[in-house]
Nucleic acid binder design. Structure first.
Lengths: 219, 219
DNA sequence: AACATTTTTTAGACTAACCTAAATATTCTT
DNA sequence: AAGAATATTTAGGTTAGTCTAAAAAATGTT
């Protein structure tokens, strides 16, 4: 139906809308997709004629309803394939992204629904991100960043903002995994580094890392 | 590494070499790939500069060692994915080809080896075709066409030459499946239609169908 | 408000993979 | 072996997606 390039742009715009709100800028897309702003402009024009984005010169874009549906279908495929890779093929969570980037473009509704069933309709992918169902609906759990936690409170690690290989490898090394219960012992006012405690150990994480960890509150 | 188009040409040339012997002609490739002869010529030149085929103007092509290895890797992926679709996702054997055509281009050696292990290293795909191992080796079983069988002899249906949807649907309807024991009752000299018997029923198949069924001899 | 900076768009070019139409080789027929 | 038929290649064009460089619009600064 749509080319891989088109799907990648839609997915990218969808992600940027989630992060920064609607009205995504050309340069932002360009840097995320690692291409030039002029290429982005070209593509936005094309997506616009296909009624996938609402685009006005110099004003940024946002997805149309059609565009959002399409983006969600790609996201669904990406996250289901990640589940498959981790649960069935024993990949580690930091190894699956690049492969899922390819698999997400395979076109077959039947395939993806059968895959969904095979995996028993998972609600989140290995990084804690919610998986849209076939109607595009998903469960967005209330989460807070580690930095916004009260000192002394605890939470379950439910997701990561940055699911790049290096960051996930860092978490592996520090023995932090999704589902771990984490208690915030102290936040250093000077550099916003955070002293945390898990069931098995204590450690200090930088502000940067703390920004990328989402917790679900727990008493 | 190589584009999907390049991989498709290599796979196509490989298949034609198997069927018709080496030195595959431009038109043959064009008709199989459903494109124009001039496009084939363009691609053959490109594949030639990459040392994947040995090409001399007006003389047809054959795969180089490098080309054959690459083709076999694609074939391996295609057939493993077909196994996955049938065994794990409950697709029927006539539904998997088009999806496998897409999946065969996913690039990750680790993925394909893990998939192979997950499927317990299958030796043939759902159509009875042998699956190359990671070194490109496969078990080619001795088979004969139904038409070449002696009257009164039996064989196990081990493969089909034409694995297109319509043909496989026909076999489904006639209740013929891989692994079935088939006895050749009679071959009509006039039109080469064949009277056969399975464990459960008797039927007459046209010469055309008989040409497309491979049996492994059995006493 | 005027100038500088940044962002975005336009103009024009490139590559991969395809196409049509015309030219050239090869093969077939007699 | 010459002409006809067929097969293949060449020449030149198209589209998708990218690029660079230049132009234009928006934004920031004083």
């Amino acid at each position: 139906m749509y080319s891989q390039a088109e799907e990648n742009y839609l997915k990218c715009i969808y992600a940027l809308e989630m992060e920064h709100g609607e009205e995504v800028s050309t340069n932002l897309i360009a840097s995320k997709i690692k291409t030039k702003a002029s290429s982005v402009t070209d593509m936005l024009k094309k997506l616009s004629t296909k009624d996938l984005v609402a685009y006005k010169k110099y004003q940024g874009v946002k997805l149309t309803e059609r565009g959002r549906e399409t983006a969600l279908r790609v996201v669904r495929k990406h996250r289901l394939w990640e589940c498959f890779l981790v649960q069935k093929l024993d990949f580690k969570w930091d190894e699956v992204h690049e492969i899922a980037e390819q698999l997400e473009h395979i076109e077959s509704d039947l395939l993806i629904d059968k895959l969904d069933a095979f995996l028993r309709f998972p609600k989140t992918d290995p990084h804690g991100d919610p998986i849209p169902d076939k109607h595009g609906r998903m469960i967005i759990s209330e989460t807070v960043k580690v930095l916004d936690m009260k000192i002394g409170s605890s939470g379950i690690l439910t997701g990561v903002r940055d699911s790049s290989g290096p960051f996930l490898k860092y978490l592996n090394k520090k023995n932090l995994a999704l589902g771990d219960k984490i208690k915030v012992i102290d936040i250093e006012p000077y550099d916003q580094s955070v002293h945390i405690e898990t069931r098995t150990h204590r450690l200090v994480i930088s502000n940067n890392v703390a920004e990328n960890l989402y917790l679900r509150n727990v008493k």
